[in-house]
Design a binder for these strands. Structure first.
Length: 696
DNA sequence: CATCCGTCTAGAT
DNA sequence: TAGACGGATG
């Protein structure tokens, strides 16, 4: 529901956001948004009363993605219905019931498709379903909180209290509750739309001095909200106009001036409307929330703050006298409507042995009071620099920490590759068919340099001041780095030089993983049979990290990987857990086979893939991202649309899913099965790596 | 011109 | 289910 048309209205207060831009922060999540979407995939099963947990898995994907960005999620659930919404809820229930009956009838008539569509309409997200997710979260040490009433108010409070710096939701109401930073339309690639409260004056089209948050909230209420229908003929635009025009702070007086201020003489503002307006406003200000730190119910804003009369708060909920009940409601142990006990979990309480493969986040729970430790926490292992703690349950399996690192490396790699591309792009002609389809040209030129587009809001390009020293701006080095111009097999001294150059480039970066068809080709050509020599040379380098360039003939995931691996003085997992099977090649600067998998790409895949698949998208993502701040958002938008035309699809830079190879016809190569996720390998697609097939 | 209203479709696998 | 969209309306 929310405010009709508010999100477009807020365009000037919003910007693109990538999760990587908010690493280390805490985010409150409107979990019902995810549950509702997740339910869609198994609506039929649920309608038939069958058990399924796809909606839980769907939500966990998002959670996993957040964790991989080192973001702490706090899942917020709706609690009791407000009296004001009881009627709409009742209508919904009835409508669902009808859909159910219709579905049953249609099934009897054999009209399966129609029945299905009805079934999708009749499923509801129940608290039991929410509890299922909550339990999974407890196993992962991911915080959940059930709001006493609306999740919106709870999230806004978390945001205002700076317990959560961001809110993820689809409901535009959040801004009315006073949330500061709201992320809308977050997808599984980690892209979303950020609306910031302190930019709202821009959306209203007034000067900052002229603006007060109250004006914005009143504008929204006037335009029609969940608690109050709008006056006929009043939408956001007129409400905005009115709120900017009036200086009267007392709305009981101001509202009466609407007809004259807006030249709508026929409009009538009766006392009833005014009364309801005051109530609606009070609802947004003073709804009850649960303060997990103080472990008590509170109002979102204290009544004193606005000198609000309690009589206006009839829709803002009531205080639960029983604090024990309130706590367990917030913990999710009670059915919010019946207050029936469904579970007895308590913070810090030992959980039954967590299922295998369950990774626990190390974030400190909002439920832990000072000094209290999570039972499964191992303080001596906690690193202050990293917000996550993992329990290594599976020797091979990737931990959350590893996911975070892998994710960071991918982004680094994007940057590094972007730099490399930028070097090429000065010298090469661009050849890219707009459709991107059909071409099997493997040696196509790289995309335009994202670095070049830095001035046009390239989020991948680091700030010029922060950027690591430019590693290569001279043409001879460029020539050397170019696989085409590099000497072929057995390059001898030349080849050694190239590698040392490459080393000098990458040594300055964070550990990165590069999947580059250029390097891969070169590496394959030049490195075969050279491993011992390389290792020796690299080991003797002064760096505190060992850099190894090895030719793997038996990667765990894929064979004949040419691996440029940077290690922190621990043995490469790859080295031990490999299996034979040639014909794939990657460049990887990492030591775990899981990340290797991300980088793995079959040569044949490369051949058969359109140019635009990863390279072009690297660029398109650049311009889509959040650096499009206000003054220049239009420009960014145009860049984005341009790139959209080119690529027609958004993908996360290099994060090519291992799955794509699996989606190739089997006949392509029997290796494909090695790149598809195996049970022992976590699904990497969960971390925001695009899973969709490559452009056709 | 802004608002209103009906229709369409994404949402997941 | 709700948001987006286009056309109708005042």
């Amino acid at each position: 529901m929310g405010i009709t048309g508010l999100i477009p209205f807020l365009e000037k207060a919003s910007s693109k956001l990538q999760l990587k831009d908010i690493r280390g922060s805490t985010v409150a999540v409107d979990t019902y948004c995810w549950l509702h979407k997740g339910v869609f995939s198994c609506a039929e099963k649920l309608a038939r009363g069958e058990d399924c947990d796809q909606y839980v898995q769907y939500c966990l994907k998002y959670i996993q993605m957040l964790l991989s960005y080192d973001i702490k999620p706090i899942l917020v659930f709706d609690g009791q219905h407000l009296p004001a919404k009881a009627l709409t809820e009742k209508r919904r229930r009835e409508s669902r019931q009808q859909s159910k009956q219709r579905a049953a009838e249609l099934l009897r008539l054999g009209r399966v498709e129609e029945a299905r569509s009805q079934m999708r309409r009749c499923v509801d997200v129940t608290h039991e379903m929410a509890l299922r997710l909550i339990r999974e979260c407890r196993n992962r040490n991911v915080d959940c909180i059930v709001a006493p009433y609306e999740a919106d108010a709870q999230m806004a409070w978390l945001n205002k209290a700076d317990i959560a710096q961001y809110i993820i939701t689809e409901d535009s109401d959040l801004t009315l509750f006073g949330a500061k930073k709201v992320i809308f339309k977050l997808d599984l690639n980690g892209n979303g739309l950020l609306v910031e409260a302190d930019k709202l004056y821009l959306a209203m089209g007034c000067r900052q001095e002229q603006y007060r948050f109250d004006k914005f909230r009143r504008m929204c209420i006037l335009s029609g909200c969940d608690y109050l229908d709008s006056l006929p003929g009043i939408g956001l635009a007129k409400a905005c106009k009115f709120m900017l025009k009036t200086e009267q702070d007392d709305m009981r007086i101001a509202l009466k001036k609407i007809p004259s201020y807006l030249n709508m003489s026929k409009l009538e503002v009766d006392d009833d409307y005014i009364e309801n307006f005051m109530k609606a406003e009070a609802t947004f200000k003073h709804m009850f929330i649960y303060n997990p730190l103080q472990r008590r119910m509170e109002r979102l804003c204290a009544l004193e703050e606005y000198a609000t009369d309690v009589s206006y708060c009839s829709n803002a909920g009531t205080l639960l006298e029983d604090s024990h009940l309130a706590l367990h409601l917030a913990l999710g142990n009670l059915n919010p409507f019946t207050l029936k006990k469904l579970d007895g979990w308590e913070p810090g309480k030992a959980l039954p042995a967590a299922p295998k493969n369950t990774k626990r986040s190390k974030h400190k729970s909002i439920w832990l009071t000072n000094g209290q430790h999570s039972v499964n926490e191992q303080p001596e292992k906690v690193q202050s620099s990293c917000a996550l703690f993992f329990k290594k349950v599976d020797f091979v399996g990737q931990t959350i920490d590893a996911e975070i690192q892998a994710n960071e490396r991918l982004e680094q790699a994007k940057q590094t590759e972007a730099q490399v591309f930028s070097m090429y792009s000065f010298k090469t002609k661009r050849r890219r068919s707009p459709s991107g389809g059909g071409s099997t040209d493997r040696e196509r030129t790289p995309p335009p340099s994202p670095v070049q587009t830095r001035s046009r809001h390239n989020p991948f390009a680091k700030d010029p001041l922060l950027r690591s020293p430019v590693v290569c701006e001279n043409s001879s080095l460029l020539r050397l780095l170019s696989p085409k111009k590099c000497s072929p097999v057995g390059g001898g001294a030349e080849e050694t030089r190239v590698n040392s150059l490459k080393r000098s480039i990458f040594a300055k970066e964070q550990p990165v993983e590069v999947r580059s068809r250029f390097f891969a080709t070169q590496a394959e050509q030049t490195m075969l049979g050279q491993q011992p020599k390389e290792e020796e040379e690299l080991a003797s380098s002064g760096s505190n990290k060992k850099l190894r360039l090895e030719t793997k003939t038996n990667a765990f995931t894929d064979p004949t990987d040419v691996v440029l691996s940077e290690e922190d003085e621990k043995p490469s997992l790859n080295a031990s857990s490999n299996e034979v099977k040639p014909s794939l090649e990657i460049i990887q600067l990492e030591d775990s086979e899981d990340t290797a998998e991300i980088g793995v790409k079959s040569l044949e895949t490369l051949k058969s893939e359109p140019a635009s698949s990863d390279t072009v998208n690297l660029v398109s993502d650049d311009s889509c991202s959040s650096e499009a701040t206000l003054p220049s958002s239009q420009e960014a938008a145009s860049v984005q649309s341009n790139n959209f035309l080119l690529s027609n699809k958004r993908r996360v830079g290099l994060s090519k899913p291992a799955n794509t190879t699996a989606k190739k016809p089997l006949s392509k190569s029997k290796n494909s099965k090695f790149s598809s996720p195996s049970p022992s390998q976590p699904k990497l697609s969960m971390f925001g790596f695009q899973k969709r097939p490559v452009l056709k």
